[in-house]
């Protein structure tokens, strides 16, 4: 975008540009909007640089102090929680395991489901697809009790498997891949058939590489989605060693409530840390992301 507007603006730009109120207004709206969205993050960052005592006294603080580094270190390395079994680093790792496992699992499952629906003459393929699609109407929150019951019955509570597997069926992913596969020209499959590629070979040698950008886009969405899971991890993981960042933050602040001052600085530091990976992924992969959703390489 930046490049485009530059190439257009540069040759036409006169030495003095005419001042236009419309432009000022547009920018004001944009700046206000982003300030509004970013303010909480900024406040978390600034407040974090004070000690817990000051935060307890003053609440949210606008300004900078010297405790930021200390709070970060504390958040990442200090063992905490009820059983003193978890550090910020460990929670970060757990979150990554959940985010990546969740995203990869969803991609693998939904690609295979879409492959079956699109390429095989199944008796009730369309019906099966709509069944999968209607599960969009049944998010985790609706089916949380039965899901918990099943996972608990299988003895998967407090395991990564129990944390990830029940979440990876994905109607959205299946839908995206289905649409994508349907846009792959028929001749490609026929050429592969004549070239001696069976269904598995075709999937791995041709379809998966063709879906690269699509996979990247879905990975980003699903990683962020998985990273931000709160309710399910809260139910399934009771051992603090398995806590993810998103659910851990609250737990940690709560622990010392009562006589001691809650560790506000540490909590805020964890919150900021929890925000960084999803933001980083989206920032670094946004090109792929856009590519995957709007164009296909055919």
């Amino acid at each position: 975008m930046a490049e485009i507007s530059q190439t257009i603006a540069t040759p036409a730009a006169p030495p003095r540009r005419r001042f236009r109120w419309g432009r000022v207004f547009d920018h004001a709206v944009l700046i206000l909007g982003s300030a509004f969205m970013l303010m909480p993050v900024l406040l978390a960052l600034t407040t974090m640089s004070f000690s817990d005592v000051q935060i307890e006294r003053q609440g949210i603080i606008f300004g900078l102090s010297d405790q930021m580094g200390a709070n970060f270190t504390k958040a990442m390395t200090e063992k905490s929680g009820f059983t003193e079994a978890i550090t910020g680093t460990r929670m970060l790792m757990n979150s990554f395991i959940l985010g990546i496992g969740f995203a990869l699992g969803k991609i693998v499952i939904s690609m295979m489901a879409a492959y079956a629906i699109v390429y095989f003459r199944l008796r009730f393929a369309t019906f099966a697809f709509w069944i999968i699609f209607t599960t969009l109407l049944l998010p985790l929150e609706v089916r949380i009790l039965p899901s918990y019951e099943v996972v608990q019955g299988m003895g998967l509570t407090n395991t990564y498997t129990g944390l990830i597997v029940p979440l990876i069926a994905s109607a959205t992913g299946t839908f995206f891949f289905r649409q994508f596969f349907r846009s792959v020209p028929e001749e490609m499959i026929e050429a592969a058939r004549i070239d001696g590629a069976g269904p598995v070979k075709f999937f791995i040698d041709i379809l998966v590489p063709l879906s690269r950008t699509m996979i990247a886009a879905i990975f980003i969405i699903m990683f962020v989605f998985g990273w931000n899971q709160y309710l399910w991890p809260t139910l399934i993981t009771t051992e603090e060693g398995l806590f993810t960042l998103v659910r851990g933050i609250k737990q940690i602040i709560q622990v010392f409530e009562g006589a001691t001052i809650p560790e506000y600085g540490k909590g805020l530091a964890l919150a900021v840390i929890a925000m960084i990976p999803p933001v980083a992924i989206v920032v670094f992969f946004q090109n792929w992301f856009v590519k995957g959703l709007v164009e296909s390489e055919k």
Binding site: E187, M188, E190, I194, D195, E297
Partner: peptide, 25 residues
């Protein structure tokens, strides 16, 4: 061997790999 109207080349493979794919299989 068949030549298709839209060629049906594998877009993610080099020319070499496109030609070699059938033999490799």
């Amino acid at each position: 061997a068949m030549v298709f109207q839209n060629y049906a080349l594998y877009p993610h493979m080099s020319v070499y790999k496109n030609m070699a794919y059938g033999l490799k299989n």
